[in-house]
Design a binder for these strands. Structure first.
Length: 580
RNA sequence: CGGGGUGUGGCUCAGUUUGGCUAGAGUACCUGAUUUGGGAUCAGGGGGUCGCAGGUUCGAAUCCUGUCACCCCGACCA
């Protein structure tokens, strides 16, 4: 490919609506073009990147006996009604009617389609286990797309579904898949992807892991222990709190605390420590607006995911009016209305003397001792773990919190879909069972954008060679000079004949512009052919990350590029054999 | 859905407060000349119903009303 013919324009100025580097660089580099809110087209340069990622994934999926299939994008609503998700999923599922008025959905995930595809085929235990996967476009009507391709509405995803006849078999395969995913991210060139425990969310099921690419612009908070292997999504991280230093109790007193509506107000007014105060966070159930009150220690935040899981249904932040049973700003666990569902966090456990709202305008209690003053205190885990918090695994205060982008995940689904959609098989004793499922996803476009986010400099992306749009870029600095052009032309031909992917810039433009474009394209190896080097009968070979810069004789150029290419691949994956 | 912001050639923006000549600049694009190792210079050229729809006015990018789109923060979220 010649740069002169490459569809997609590169330009200098940063588009005004790009907030993160990778987004700006991928737009500036002619990789993608905005079409609509959360919707992008891929230019050839990006398509080559995503195609390479897809093929790395395919190879690994096939290696663990996956079989590629293709599900439809548009599905009849009836299929989703079978699983119950036509109703249970929110408006991110696009529902519409066709010309005959029959209801359809746009696929946002394909559990239903997977079960539908195999439920007649897999009626005998002899067919198990098996895994099917696809690489497909999905549409999710996200509330707020952002960050370029990192959070979009339409995207390509590899989704895989495995079917098993026992939990043990699923566990075994889950681990196989876990390892395959590690290899995928290794080969894509982002070893900085880490696995974390996660919350299963609407997918159902129990065990699940997310693959997180650590970067400050990530949308998820990751809890990492510096002392042991514990890593978790904030949503799933158990919080433990040591209140052993605050067990002294005191007399329960109701004190007037005028205009003290926040924890800080109250603690300042009473000159007490926030760590012995009780904060109330009020929610309402989406279904009936019934109040749910979460009490946490004053210096902690509520982890809404954990709360939601405990409540067992969706909740939203409450709006309290004067007619309600709660007194905004003065809510406390002692003497609270029976109408509210109350959850008390473990961060309050063991404190001898707590400051808390008195459920009465202008008053707080001091000296509240939950075990002494309340009947049946049941502590639950609904708070967010904090920096330097206690690791739930090793018990040391060694928690750090980082940001990450979720680029993949694996779930144990159980029988949620096989039961609801009545998929059964007959075992060797003639008895019927529901197969147990696992599902495994990777967002391809998001992964490409994330790699760019982690691997770039101020001039452009620095693609790992395994997914780079081209492995080599040839810059012919003086295409108007006959000799220079001749050498560059022949080098381009030689590289192609040696199966090295090269993009060739033989435009008659100034060197500065040519280098800038090359930086934006981001090929890992660059060969510069110029009159200056030709005086020494040499060309210059450099890497995009500037770690290598050599001048080699023209006749050794192809060999040098080949060696450098193999070295770059070897740096990425221990198993170079795969790439030869 | 709530709060804030922005819509003017492909891109970045000025002009809007205080209505007034033919709507501007830079960049990108086309032609020519000079130039050639980090986004050159000069000359010439093409490209814009100023988001859209109404309204006020002799006159609207500018004022009024409505509407749409996008960006940021929040809510929400396999």
């Amino acid at each position: 490919m010649k740069v002169a013919n490459l569809v997609g324009q590169r330009f200098k100025e940063k588009p005004s609506d790009c907030v993160i580097d990778s987004h700006a660089l991928m737009v500036r580099g002619g990789f993608m073009k905005y079409v609509g809110n959360g919707i992008y087209s891929e230019f050839p340069a990006l398509r080559r990147v995503t195609a390479k990622i897809e093929n790395i994934i395919r190879k690994e999926m096939d290696a663990i006996d996956g079989q590629e299939v293709l599900f439809p994008v548009v599905m009849p609503a009836s299929l989703w009604e079978e699983s119950g998700r036509y109703k249970s999923v929110g408006s991110e599922l696009v529902r519409f009617k066709d010309r005959n008025g029959s209801k359809h959905v746009l696929g946002m995930t394909h559990e239903e389609a997977a079960v539908h595809l195999v439920r007649e085929y897999a009626q005998s235990y002899t067919k198990y286990p098996f895994m099917i996967y696809q690489v497909q476009r999905k549409f999710r009507d996200e509330a707020r797309p952002r960050a370029g391709m990192i959070r979009v509405r339409e995207f390509t995803m590899k989704d895989a579904y495995s079917f098993h006849t026992s939990q043990e078999d699923l566990d075994k395969y889950y681990d196989v898949c876990f390892q395959a995913y590690n290899r995928i991210f290794q080969k894509v060139g982002v070893p900085e992807v880490v696995t974390v425990q996660s919350d299963s969310g609407m997918m159902g099921g129990s065990v699940s892991h997310e693959y997180m690419l650590l970067t400050p612009i990530g949308e998820d908070s990751i809890v990492i222990c510096n002392e042991c292997d514990y890593r978790s999504n904030m949503e799933a991280a158990k919080n433990e709190v040591d209140n052993s230093g605050a067990c002294d109790s005191a007399e329960l007193l109701c004190i007037e605390t005028p205009n003290c509506k926040t924890i800080d107000d109250v603690c300042a007014f009473l000159k007490s420590d926030v760590k012995t105060s009780c904060k109330a966070v009020v929610y309402q159930k989406n279904a009936d607006d019934k109040f749910v009150v979460a009490f946490v220690r004053g210096d902690y935040e509520v982890n809404e995911t954990k709360l939601r899981n405990l409540v067992g249904e969706e909740v939203h932040t409450a709006e309290i009016t004067e007619e309600d049973c709660l007194v905004a700003g003065y809510i406390g666990p002692y003497g609270i209305s029976d109408e509210a569902e109350v959850y008390i966090d473990v961060s309050l456990k063991g404190i001898g003397s707590i400051v808390a709202g008195a459920n009465k305008e202008g008053y707080h209690y001091t000296g509240l001792n939950l075990e002494r003053d309340l009947v049946n205190v049941n502590y639950v885990d609904i708070s967010k773990i904090k920096e330097n918090g206690i690791c739930p695994c090793c018990g040391k205060s060694a928690i750090t919190i980082k940001r990450g982008i979720e680029v993949g995940n694996i779930f144990q689904l159980g029988t949620k879909y096989t039961e609801s959609m009545n998929m059964q098989y007959t075992d060797e004793n003639g008895e019927s069972h529901y197969p147990i499922m696992g599902c495994y996803g990777i967002g391809v476009g998001r992964l490409a954008a994330s790699v760019c986010e982690v691997h770039h400099d101020e001039y452009g992306p620095i693609w790992p060679i395994s997914i780079a749009p081209w492995e080599v870029q040839i810059c012919c600095l003086r295409a108007d000079d006959e000799e220079t052009k001749k050498v560059a032309d022949s080098l381009y031909k030689d590289l192609k004949n040696n199966n090295i992917e090269a993009i060739y810039d033989d435009r008659e433009i100034r060197p500065g512009a040519m280098f800038s474009d090359a930086d934006l394209i981001g090929a890992p190896i660059r060969v510069t052919v110029s009159p200056r080097n030709l005086k020494e009968s040499s060309v210059e070979i450099t890497t995009r990350d500037k770690s290598v810069k050599t001048i080699v004789p023209i006749e050794e150029a192809v060999k040098s590029v080949q060696n450098l290419r193999l070295k770059l691949f070897a740096d990425i994956a221990a198993n170079v054999e795969d790439y030869k």
